[in-house]
Design a binder for these strands. Structure first.
Length: 251
DNA sequence: AAAGACACCTGGGAGC
DNA sequence: TGCTCCCAGGTGTCTT
């Protein structure tokens, strides 16, 4: 079954970047495919594609026509059915752009591999890390290295892999890199299964929170005892991001 | 080329 | 209770 977008109402076009003119002008277009690359959502139409990012607080929800407009509902997608999609984003870190060739769009074309794909493997990460003195945490959070690893999951994966987040990327053996890759996949996979991690304002497309936070080992647990060795977890700032780790379990 | 600093934004919590 | 201040996050861009 295909769905068409009849029109888009922009209530607040001031997101991370101004919403593309083509989005304002869009009328009665069939959505041919819905794709994803990294954290970008791609809606493909006959003559181009919409590139959507939810930033950190954005959500897109399917609602009935008579649903009350909420604060921070910035875009309304009028569908051919009796439903609407509302793009809500309190912090406006999200974006809604247009491209006639989205794969070559500058925000997309140099992204690293998908973390759950075969392309993201120990050999790849090890080879790339060879020329980087950067801390491993910043390295894996770089979307040009691998997409999808945000701050929470970087903290968790490094803990599970037993690697100190400050360790230089080029100072990690192939064997340990294999473990890190495995843990990144594990953490993301489990988080997806649980509907994500809700700390403040995250909700899924059904408006419900995620539940992964219930099994976080380190994130948000600074100064609490390590779940494995009971030593007090250390909380520091790296690249202006909260970083939590166990000095005993991670080295 | 790589790394570091900085920017964007609002809600919520802490502190007064 | 109400005000002010600070912080959290994803990720692009600018500077070094």
């Amino acid at each position: 079954m295909s769905e068409a977008i009849e029109a888009i109402e922009v209530r607040n076009g001031h997101l991370r970047w101004p919403i593309s003119d083509e989005v304002y002008a869009l009328e009665s277009q069939n959505v041919e495919q819905v794709l994803r690359r990294g954290k970008y959502i791609i809606l493909e139409f006959e003559h181009g594609a919409m590139i959507i990012h939810l930033g950190m607080s954005g959500s897109m929800r399917i609602v009935n026509l008579d649903a009350e407009i909420k604060k921070h509902d910035h875009l309304i997608f009028y569908l051919s059915s009796e439903k609407q999609i509302r793009f809500n984003d309190p912090r406006r870190f999200g974006s809604v752009l247009w491209s006639t060739d989205w794969r070559q769009h500058k925000l997309i074309k140099s992204l690293g591999p998908e973390p759950l794909s075969e392309d993201f493997n120990a050999a790849y990460l090890y080879r790339l890390a060879k020329q980087r003195k950067r801390a491993i945490k910043q390295f894996i959070m770089n979307s040009h290295v691998v997409v999808g690893v945000g701050n929470i999951y970087a903290n968790e994966a490094l803990f599970l892999a037993g690697i100190n987040p400050k360790r230089a990327a080029n100072n990690i053996s192939l064997r340990r890199m294999a473990i890190l890759v495995e843990k990144i996949k594990l953490v993301l996979d489990k988080a997806i299964q649980q509907g994500g991690t809700t700390l403040k304002d995250f909700v899924g497309s059904d408006g419900k929170p995620g539940y992964f936070q219930q099994q976080l080992f380190v994130y948000g647990r600074g100064a609490l005892p390590c779940k494995c060795c009971e030593q007090e977890l250390k909380e520091i700032r790296m690249n202006n991001r909260t970083t939590v780790f166990c000095k005993k379990c991670q080295n």
